[in-house]
Simulated assay, not measured.
Amino acid sequence: MGVALFTLGGTISMAGHTQGAEAVVRLNGADLAAAVPGLTRLGMPLDIHDIEAVPSANLTFAHILALVDSASQAVKAGACGVVVTQGTDTLEETAFLIDLVWPHTEPFVLTGAMRNPTLAGPDGPANLLAAARTAASPASHGLGALVVFNDEIHAARWVRKTHSTSTATFASPNAGPIGHVIEGRARVLMAPARHRVPYPRPEALGKTRVALHTVTFDEDAEIVAAIAEECHGLIIAGFGVGHVPGKLADLLGTLAERMPVVLTSRTGGGSVLRHTYGAIGSEADLQRRGLINGGLLDPYKARILLRLLLAGGADREAVIAAFADHG
């Protein structure tokens, strides 16, 4: 048994540009592994699978669900865990998508880099080593998808990219890391609750549209109406604890009569409240109008969850229950 490594590209694999061209020179999985001191002392083989290098901004549900299928086959063939390297731009979202559908107790660990290998102090080798150690550790079993960066272990449900360039960009504002890699050993301090959702039908997923709108100062209701016109679900990232301008309240209530509208917070940390404020446009008012409370779930992950649920045929009560579990 070994660790299966899947490579999707990203900063961790960027080795510069070809001379006089715009094309990026990319390292494959063997190159990445060869650059990691200590990886040969992992105590088990690394089974490398090079996938098409895709900038993380171009990744789709289809890419990630295909990756889950491939990783699942690796586990069925004997892998004790999975590591994926990818770009960091969408890593918090791909990790949560994977966590929602990953059916195995073996861990699925995602990592990457903020500094590419041509720069001084690239963080990719250290992150890859920590990820491999986490994937190989029995302590990680049953935790679903994990993000390992900067020797911290984060649950996919809570992790966020919080800085555009820092090597300490990944954090979990509402929970903190669930563990650390210390002296080469993965130390898990707490195990988050996991709630899987049914695997979506590909044809239904492709037809399911869920929009995310961040509410801003002096918001234009017509813009919100236009965004929601062709959607099957809508995520609202409201002010603070879940507030919107009063002039949006009637519109959002009307939208909630024909599709799930989930209320989240745009702040990056903390929960949407339920019954503290009662003015028009407050969290209590919006819930009375039919909006679903997203709780602690951030807007980006709320969109992932709602799209999976709708593609899987979930009715309104099932959507409410799922957000109660995850939020």
Rank of each mutant, 00 (worst) to 15 (best):
G327K: 09
S172T: 00
I227A: 08
R274G: 10
S164G: 12
H141F: 03
H17A: 09
L32D: 12
R209W: 10
A211S: 11
A193W: 06
T165Q: 08
A193E: 09
K247Q: 14
G281I: 09
H17G: 10
G253T: 04
S70M: 09
E92V: 08
I98D: 00
H154S: 01
A74H: 12
P138Q: 04
S265H: 09
L248R: 02
L5F: 15
T162M: 14
E22W: 14
R185E: 00
N293Y: 01
L189T: 02
T40L: 11
L291V: 04
I51G: 07
F6Q: 09
I235M: 09
G206Y: 04
G144E: 03
A74F: 14
K301T: 07
A186Y: 05
A226V: 04
G10S: 12
P192Q: 00
G10D: 09
I12W: 07
A237L: 07
A322L: 08
G142M: 02
L263I: 15
L39A: 10
A113P: 04
V261E: 15
L32V: 08
H180F: 02
L273P: 11
R201K: 11
L100Q: 13
K247E: 14
G312W: 03
A77R: 14
A324W: 02
Y199L: 15
V3S: 12
E52D: 12
A120P: 00
L291W: 05
V109D: 11
E52G: 11
E93P: 04
D285Y: 13
H17V: 08
E222R: 04
Q73D: 08
L129G: 00
L308P: 00
V83H: 05
A168W: 13
A57R: 13
F170M: 06
A71P: 05
T18S: 07
F149T: 03
P192R: 01
A175H: 05
G246L: 07
H326S: 06
L143Y: 01
A126Q: 01
V84G: 03
T208M: 11
Q287E: 15
A130C: 05
R289D: 08
E317H: 11
G253F: 06
N127I: 00
A311C: 07
Q73V: 13
A136P: 04
N293W: 03
Q287W: 06
L119G: 03
T88W: 00
A130F: 04
G268C: 11
E92P: 13
R41L: 14
G10I: 06
G121K: 06
A228P: 11
A30K: 13
A249D: 10
A256I: 08
A155L: 01
A302M: 05
L100P: 03
A204Q: 12
E183L: 12
P173H: 12
G112F: 14
F6R: 09
N293E: 02
P245I: 05
R187W: 07
R274S: 08
D285V: 09
G81D: 01
